[in-house]
Amino acid sequence: MSLLAQSVVRLLFLPSLVVATAFCVRGSTGMGDGFSAGLVAAIATSLVLLAFGPRQARRILPLRHAPATAGIGLLLVVGSAVVPALVHGIPLEHFPRVEFQVVRLGALAVNSSLLFDAGIAAVVAGGVVHVLDRAASTDGQDA
């Protein structure tokens, strides 16, 4: 694709990832959630794929780790559902529970829903990027 597209995408990529993280983290108190975070990250990656072509995009970004990302995301999601069920008998319970103090990292509250949203973001981003990567490579352009 054209040089203009490539430079724009190069500038846009990292800020898009920051926006995605913001969506994921703000989800509990404002607009956004894991799904939109994953989508924004996936769109940014697909822009890179389009602007640079599959071969070069694979050199710039670690696209071959996309399925593993999705797997880790699934692990987080299923873990937040199953682990409380194994411990307390209630699936998807919120941790920390009401009686404990909220653990904060600066202004960010660290709790199980953050983990869950991060997992969903990883699943969506990893899955979409994997599908796009495979679709791009079966058109005979690339191995």
Binding site: L75, A81, V82, A85, L86, G89, P91
Partner: peptide, 18 residues
């Protein structure tokens, strides 16, 4: 107790996907 079949299914499908 009722979650057990679902938990087994989820963990198993995760493992099998890998």
């Amino acid at each position: 107790m009722i979650f057990v079949p679902l938990a087994i299914g989820w963990i198993a499908s995760l493992v099998l996907l890998a």
